[in-house]
Design a binder for these strands. Structure first.
Lengths: 157, 157
DNA sequence: TATTGTTATACTCTATAACTATA
DNA sequence: TATAGTTATAGAGTATAACAATA
């Protein structure tokens, strides 16, 4: 495809962030694809490891995924042998989700792949520039109230 | 929603970029909503203004939107009075898309809203930090082969 | 009555293929 | 035959409402 006219207006930084963010998300999805999981699965994997005896509703709220969709995602992950549904003994309406041994292993592999992805994505920058970018992004993320480590997903506006 | 456990691993910069990028895209969509258009419409508006006598196929290729979806989007924008379909005189298979006067006006308003969005999104940073962030993002965007001014959309992996 | 998980349904967006009209 | 635009259709994902089991 030929490059567009040089009449392009310089895009603002916010636009650059959406370009880079989308590109990074797509590349992350490619990186974890060999594990047989998609980005929503990856988010669930991390959160279930972080929150003991997590219920599906808690997960859904934190990840911005609808409960009805969460059912399907948990079904898929249980079928992959990554986690187990156990009814809570104290309130039998709840599940207490827990990773299986294989789930723990997959989580570990996912973290390695995420680190690889991160390094390759930032490779064009010097290590000093990488630190600066990270610091500025963290500052923005905090001010915009983004939960650390939880992807906002693409829920409705 | 209570904050998550402090056991959170520090996310990499690539993850921060996807968080911020998604958040920025959502806020941009909110900003332009009063114009009665969505982000795909906004991308078309900018590109039709940039490329004279643009065909739908060219648009679709540049924006990563399928030709079949492009038909619907152009239909909508024509109905809103933002652009016109004119058959090419030299090759009657092609359309030559052109903005109407109202399309030009809407484009102008959209650019103002985009500037407002950009300023408010980056407001937590000092102007020096904003410049640094923009420079680093541009460097990354160039190295990753992202077309200046064209949102990659959310096409398949 | 309220809540967790689940199912059903509608709508949007993505993706592919087939069709038309032009070339 | 090849290409631009269009239509039809199937598959994800999003969103809402309704339902069963449990509290």
């Amino acid at each position: 495809m030929p490059p567009l006219s040089s009449e392009n207006r310089a895009p603002g930084a916010a636009f650059l962030l959406t370009q880079l963010g989308t590109h990074a998300a797509r590349r992350f999805a490619e990186h974890i694809e060999p594990l047989g999981i998609t980005p929503p699965h990856a988010g669930i994997l991390r959160l279930v490891a972080m929150i003991p005896d997590c219920s599906q509703q808690k997960l859904a709220t934190h990840l911005g995924i609808l409960p009805s969709r969460m059912v399907v995602l948990i079904d898929e992950m249980a079928q992959l042998g990554l986690l187990e549904r156990r009814r809570s003994a104290t309130d039998r309406r709840n599940y207490e989700l827990a990773l299986t041994e294989q789930g723990e292993r997959t989580l570990g592999e996912m973290r390695l792949l995420a680190a690889t992805h991160d390094a390759s994505f930032l490779a064009p920058l010097s290590s000093e520039e990488q630190e600066t970018l990270k610091r500025l992004c963290q500052k923005l993320a905090i001010h915009h109230g983004l939960t650390p480590g939880v992807h906002p997903g693409y829920k409705s506006l």
